[in-house]
Amino acid sequence: MNGRVELITQAEYARRRGVAKSAVAKAVKEGRITLIDGKIDPAVADIQWAQNTRARADAGRAASESSSAMGEAPSAANSAPQAQESAPVGASSGKDDYQALRVRREMAAVEREERENAREAGLLLDRREVSRGVFDAFRALRDEVFNAPQRSAPRVVGLADVREIEHVLMEELRKAFTIAERRLQDLMPEKPEAA
Rank of each mutant, 00 (worst) to 15 (best):
R15G: 04
R32G: 06
G31Q: 02
L184K: 07
R102F: 12
F135D: 10
R115E: 12
V168K: 03
A109F: 09
V110E: 14
V162L: 15
K29C: 06
I36E: 13
E164R: 02
P189R: 11
P154A: 02
E120F: 04
A121F: 02
G3C: 10
Q84K: 11
T9I: 03
A118R: 03
D143P: 00
G133P: 02
E30T: 12
N78T: 06
A87P: 08
E129M: 11
S64E: 05
S92D: 12
N78I: 02
T34G: 12
L124K: 02
E113G: 05
A180F: 06
R155P: 00
S79E: 14
M70F: 08
S79A: 13
A87E: 13
R127T: 15
E166P: 02
R119I: 01
D126I: 04
D161R: 13
R54M: 11
Q82T: 11
V89P: 05
E113Q: 13
P81C: 07
A11I: 10
D143F: 05
V157N: 04
G71W: 02
I40T: 04
S92N: 12
H167S: 15
E116D: 14
I40C: 03
L159C: 06
L159A: 06
L101M: 13
P154M: 01
V28N: 04
E144C: 11
L187P: 01
P42D: 03
S22I: 13
R151T: 09
S68Q: 09
L123K: 04
A50Q: 06
E30H: 08
F135S: 13
V168I: 15
K39C: 05
R17A: 09
I36L: 11
I8L: 06
R16M: 10
A118F: 02
R105Q: 12
Q82E: 13
R32S: 08
E144L: 08
R155L: 15
L141C: 07
Q51C: 09
D96L: 11
A195G: 10
D58M: 15
R128K: 10
Q48F: 01
G71K: 03
P192I: 07
Q48R: 03
G94S: 09
R183S: 04
A45I: 00
L125E: 14
V19M: 00
D96Q: 15
A25P: 00
I179R: 14
G31R: 03
I165L: 13
L187H: 08
K191I: 12
A20I: 01
L101P: 00
L101V: 07
A148M: 06
L169S: 05
G3V: 14
R61N: 06
A20N: 14
Q99T: 04
A91K: 12
N52Y: 03
